[in-house]
């Protein structure tokens, strides 16, 4: 694993998302972008559908991302990226095409396009930064919104959230990983591994990216909320190679429910769960249990 000191040095020499971009205070996705781009060693070409990243990159000269960005139609990114990847495969194989998309663009409107690119095993790293609702347009419910979370279009729902990572594992995607902005070293390593070890294949990384503005969280707690998502067992950290899951070192112990921290304490930090009803809380617990059952079932021997 990369050392903290090393990551600091790498990010001091190459800044992927520059100062003065338009991210909100405490933005989780902005951290994710910084670490991800650092791992890709200035070879990344980003394809970005409508999402917070379309906004935070800013406009005009001196825009805020130090990498080429193609802004695509909402549901089109994996296919646009396929076109880039097919041309650069022959013309310049050093280019790593990356789709950088939110949860709405991935779990909802872009799901068929994602499925197609995954099935074709396109040479793309797909990053879904999950801030669990349509945050760019102001926190509307998406397919990835967890049970009980209040959004501007829902007062909390019982249905489990749609896990695109699990869907990608069952799609037969070569490399699937979950990551979290509160674990930058783990995130960096996974991006690096996807880039260096599984080149030529479709790779999918889902990053938990807290959204203080949308979740009604104090911006200083972005890392804390992210860390607790892992420590409560809500967000298992793993890698799956050819469908076989290996738990990541930093989150491995939370396989044991006894080691997990209090779900209620974590929810209390987030305004969106402030008045969570008991039946929604129960649905959230069941969703967590379900995701661990899947992990256990697909764990490498």
């Amino acid at each position: 694993m990369v050392k903290l000191k090393e990551l600091i040095e790498i990010e001091a020499t190459y800044v992927g998302n520059m100062k003065g971009n338009l991210a909100c205070a405490g933005c989780g996705l902005n951290l994710a972008l910084r670490h991800a781009l650092a791992a890709l060693d200035q070879h990344a070409l980003l394809v970005v559908p409508a999402c917070c990243t379309s906004v935070i990159q800013g406009f005009g000269e001196g825009y805020g991302i130090n990498a080429p960005v193609f802004n695509s139609a909402f549901a089109a990114s994996p296919a646009v990226a396929s076109g880039f990847a097919r041309v650069y495969k022959k013309k310049d194989p050093s280019v790593q095409v990356v789709v950088w998309a939110g949860d709405g663009g991935t779990a909802d409107i872009g799901l068929a396009t994602l499925s197609g690119a995954a099935e074709r095993d396109e040479d793309i790293i797909y990053v879904m930064y999950n801030n669990e609702a349509y945050q760019n347009t102001g926190d509307q419910k998406s397919g990835a919104t967890p049970p009980g979370a209040v959004t501007t279009t829902s007062s909390g729902e019982k249905r489990p959230s749609k896990s695109v990572s699990r869907l990608m594992i069952t799609h037969g995607v070569k490399y699937v990983a979950t990551a979290n902005t509160a674990y930058p070293l783990d995130l960096y390593d996974k991006m690096k591994r996807a880039y260096e070890e599984f080149r030529g294949h479709f790779r999918f990384i889902e990053i938990y990216a807290p959204c203080p503005a949308g979740w009604n969280v104090d911006p200083r707690y972005t890392a804390k909320v992210g860390k607790l998502a892992v420590e409560t067992g809500y967000w298992p950290l793993y890698e799956a190679v050819d469908g076989k899951i290996t738990l990541s070192r930093q989150g491995r112990r939370f396989l044991d429910p006894e080691k997990r921290k209090s779900l209620e304490d974590w929810l209390a930090l987030q305004g969106r769960f402030k008045k969570i009803k008991p039946e929604f809380l129960e649905a959230l617990r069941q969703d967590i249990d379900h995701s661990w059952e899947f992990v256990k079932k697909h764990m490498a021997e």
Binding site: S77, V80, G83, F84, V87
Partner: peptide, 15 residues
């Protein structure tokens, strides 16, 4: 939708 999107990416890559 993806057919045209793929062509878009290809041309933006200089193809």
């Amino acid at each position: 939708h993806s057919a045209m999107a793929t062509c878009i990416g290809a041309v933006a890559a200089g193809g």
